[in-house]
Design a protein around this nucleic acid. Sequence first.
DNA 1: GCCGGACTATGACCGCGGTCATAGAACCAA
DNA 2: TTGGTTCTATGACCGCGGTCATAGTCCGGC
Lengths: 234, 234
Amino acid sequence: MMRGQPVDMDLAQRADLFQHALGFQGLSQEQIAQIAGLAFGRRFAKGEIIFEPNLPCRFFYLVARGLAKVYICSPSGMRLTYLLANRGEPLNLIGPFTGTPRFLSAEAMEEAVVAHVRRQDFLRFASQHPAVVVNIISILGRAIDSANSRIVDLVEKRVEQRLVRVLFTLLAKFGTEINLTSSELAELAGTTTESTLRTMARLRRLGIIASGRGQVKIIQPASLKKLHSDPLWV
Amino acid sequence: MMRGQPVDMDLAQRADLFQHALGFQGLSQEQIAQIAGLAFGRRFAKGEIIFEPNLPCRFFYLVARGLAKVYICSPSGMRLTYLLANRGEPLNLIGPFTGTPRFLSAEAMEEAVVAHVRRQDFLRFASQHPAVVVNIISILGRAIDSANSRIVDLVEKRVEQRLVRVLFTLLAKFGTEINLTSSELAELAGTTTESTLRTMARLRRLGIIASGRGQVKIIQPASLKKLHSDPLWV
DNA sequence: GCCGGACTATGACCGCGGTCATAGAACCAA
DNA sequence: TTGGTTCTATGACCGCGGTCATAGTCCGGC
């Protein structure tokens, strides 16, 4: 089943999207035009589901506008955010190759447009362009490194350090103004909303951040970096 | 730098290895012979390092005999086992493609022989055989799923459930006799040796396992499965 | 306006599991 | 044999952080 509402994206728009998209660097204009020609856009309202777990993969998804998150929902209801995708970032790189159901869900965190490519079209394109496949493997490598790094953090770091690391990552991605709620930050750090709120209060008292409803401002990026990297040289 | 000692493997042996190796299914005899022709074996003593983190990747590694582990060593000294590789299982799938340094180390857990393929040779072979690349992406997909699943377990499961899950996985891989120490199990479950020993004592009192020095025997696989999957339908 | 829901904020409680300490058993090498 | 190392075993302690409860605040919808 396909979700969202159809939305117009002309070929030039689609080409511009793929031109700068993660995983499609180094392609010629014709190759970009080829994959852009296979894509079509769909619009999602804030909070709308883009894909569900445990269903066979039918599309390759690439965010064209807005922000989407990919997350795992555990049997007991805990949600863990796996990926925040801006314009130009793909939501699923494995599924299009294997086609098999996986455990991830995706939803729009704000009004968003997501480009779709039918799985078979995507597969055919990828198999004709080894450079794309090598790009994808290297993105997957980063994903695995990132997952391993989260595992290490969960085992040996406390909540404060994990949250600081999340904020530091978000600083690089969104700049000093981060429009996320404490619950969303908690799902990124692998902890509870309460602990996140407590920790943010501490960081606020230290003058490192300011925070309001659904927003965090990084006041002292340097202190954040110091807190974050401290354990590395202790 | 290349570690281990050179060891003779004739072409037939190497071909037999790749024939059944993870990621090389569905290749013709000639293709198998081709990759086997590029490989050479090296021997490692128990405990010997196979590769170190933070060095550029120079080889693709495939276990030919014995058992090896791939692990992450955190700055503070905690070790987390990422992969146990038997005969036919590759140690590194990302590195050969990107060539960039990563965070993983590998060491032989017993006397082992590991087939090496020079990175450039491996890359050339892979780019000529898209089927291999798709296989590799699907293995990477499994690795990512497994990492995510460990993350969820670390966030919301207690040590006992994680350890049971580890034992259950090892049961599938090695059968009912598992030759690992409690420290090694701890590094798999993401906990301490002490907690592992305590938990094993509990499982022993329940009659589910028996354990001795460096060995665990699964007495009641069914109970293990029940303990392990319980939370799924609660 | 008013009301309901989402978000923030904070206190109290307490249990899991990490840390430290101690000790005995098994194994190996000299 | 002896001595050293590794592995198993278990007790005591206690702090982080999850859970539950309460309340205040902001926002959107009717």
